[in-house]
């Protein structure tokens, strides 16, 4: 019984974590139209930094090397992980968000992601290279002293609370003036600019907020699995988040949740438990990646708006004389491209 509950709780934890990833990407891509092809890099940055903040100093003689090792309590580690992901998002944004065509932006994010991957993998002094961090302390596990299955349930509760806060804040952002400006930029950057919106700043906000979200998901990931190595965050993993958002429905957080459930939990995580063929150990991940890539292409062909479509802004009922000029313009723009 405990095993079944533990298994369900494990899927629940992944569901919460992928929700947070999908919210983050939704803020970047769904709200603002930033093609961030390196989502998973921010997860890694958040996870690694939270890991080295919570771990004790590196022990000589163990052949495990990493920076910092501050033995900080877990809430502080969470903040450090989130802030670090935001900082990396800012740095990538500085290059990618200049007024360039979207192809360039996508190329820069993808290239920056593989640079981070290469540096983390090759430089063993940072986070122990391709071996990765191991034995990251789990929050409260020392205090509670539970068996692994019961602990998973407690951890699920923690993830669910963090996920709910993230969801609430993402919805607030969507409805806020900043969120409306983001959507106006998504539809037409030049129109938003003509109305005096500081598009670079708004896009940078989306980039950083989204990165922080993904970083928080990364912190939860490293807490849950207690280890993180570059093999766990390749380009394929980025695409799982993309698939979740595209299949679920971009631009709305309910769609992100539905997509995380369909793609990340039902499809991706469930297939991890399939029996592997011993002579072909890579076949299952290969087939999974092929299916996820194919799923996105098929979704974009047959239902480009996703399972749960973004609700259209009802701009016709907004009498023009009530709103400010810029406000109604943003609403108008948000409609035009749907």
């Amino acid at each position: 019984m405990g095993v079944v509950i533990g298994y369900i709780a494990t899927l629940g934890v992944y569901f919460c974590i992928y929700n947070i990833f999908a919210f983050g990407l939704n803020i970047q891509f769904g709200y603002t139209g930033i093609l961030d092809f390196t989502v998973i890099t921010f997860m890694a940055v958040g996870g690694y930094l939270a890991g080295v903040a919570a771990l004790g100093p590196e022990q000589p003689g163990t052949d495990i090397y990493y920076v910092l090792g501050l033995s900080l309590p877990w809430p502080v580690a969470l903040l450090i992980g989130a802030a670090a992901a935001g900082a990396v998002g800012y740095l990538i944004g500085l290059i990618a968000l200049r007024r360039l065509r979207s192809d360039y932006l996508a190329i820069v994010t993808l290239a920056a992601g593989s640079i981070v991957y290469g540096i983390v993998g090759n430089d063993t002094r940072l986070f122990d290279g391709f071996e990765g961090l191991v034995g990251v302390p789990q929050p409260l596990s020392g205090v509670l002293n539970l068996n692994p299955n019961d602990y998973t349930v407690v951890f699920l509760a923690l993830c669910a609370v963090i996920m709910a806060v993230c969801w609430f804040l993402a919805n607030r952002l969507y409805k806020s003036p900043l969120g409306r400006t983001m959507r106006a930029i998504r539809e037409d950057l030049e129109v938003a600019e003509a109305y005096g919106k500081r598009t670079f700043r708004v896009r940078m906000s989306a980039m950083v907020i989204g990165s922080i979200y993904v970083g928080i998901g990364g912190v939860l990931t490293i807490w849950f699995v207690t280890s993180l190595a570059p093999a766990g965050w390749g380009t394929g993993e980025t695409f799982v988040v993309w698939a979740a958002l595209i299949v679920g429905g971009r631009g709305n957080n309910l769609g992100a949740v539905v997509g995380s459930f369909l793609v990340a939990v039902l499809f991706n995580e469930a297939t991890r438990f399939l029996p592997a063929i011993s002579s072909l150990p890579n076949l299952i991940p290969e087939i999974r990646n092929i299916c996820i890539g194919g799923l996105v292409i098929l979704t974009l062909w047959f239902r480009p708006q996703g399972v749960v479509a973004e609700r259209k802004a009802r701009f016709f009922v907004v009498p023009l004389q009530h709103g400010t000029v810029a406000g109604s313009a943003a609403a108008e723009v948000a409609v035009s491209g749907d």
Binding site: W242, A243, I287, N289, I290, G293, I297
Partner: peptide, 13 residues
């Protein structure tokens, strides 16, 4: 771009 990105995942795997 998303289609070709997905395509790269499919083809490489």
């Amino acid at each position: 771009l998303i289609v070709t990105f997905g395509l790269s995942l499919v083809l490489l795997n």
